[in-house]
Structures are given as structure tokens and as C-alpha cells.
């Protein structure tokens, strides 16, 4: 069953589809511009050795973001 969780709560290795940025508006323009958009499939590859930031694979490349940023991205696991 599909389930919406925060990107920061996604399990390592799991793939999910971005659903929404709950805090709409100007905050995460750059993340969107880097291709993380509602409907985009992403995979959480790993966290850094100290647990933060996260590394995701999106549109064929690797991107890092902090957990505090990933909290504002809702994803749907399948």
C-alpha cells in the first residue's frame, strides 16, 4: 500500500516518488531546480558516516541534502 512519509524517514536503499513540498513557496526552489519535483522517482542511497546529510539518486545523478531539508519533502513509497 502506498504510504506518504518524509524523505528524511525513508529507509536506505528505498525508492520513492516525491509527492509534495508541504511548505510551499520559495523555500526549496533550488531543490526543485535540481530536479526533485512532485512525480520524480528518487532513491535514498546512503547517509553520511555521521548520519547527516543524505545522498539521493535522482534523474540519474547523485545529490546530497541535509535531513533538516529532507523533512520538507513528502515522498510516497510503493
Amino acid at each position: 500500500m502506498a504510504q506518504e512519509i518524509k524523505l528524511s524517514e525513508l529507509a536506505i536503499g528505498a525508492t520513492a516518488v516525491v509527492r509534495a513540498y508541504p511548505k510551499a513557496g520559495t523555500e526549496f526552489i533550488r531543490l526543485r531546480e535540481m530536479g526533485v519535483l512532485p512525480g520524480t522517482s528518487i532513491t535514498l542511497i546512503r547517509t553520511a558516516p555521521l548520519g547527516d546529510p543524505l545522498e539521493i539518486k535522482v534523474r540519474g545523478y547523485r545529490l546530497t541534502l541535509r535531513k533538516s531539508e529532507a523533512e520538507f519533502v513528502l515522498v510516497e513509497t510503493t
Partner: peptide, 11 residues
């Protein structure tokens, strides 16, 4: 502001 860490990890 809290600096962001939106960074590409190039191949």
C-alpha cells in the same frame, strides 16, 4: 540562514 547542503556528488 541555515546554509543548505544541496550539493551534487559528481561521478
Amino acid at each position: 540562514s541555515q546554509p543548505k547542503m544541496i550539493m551534487e556528488l559528481p561521478p
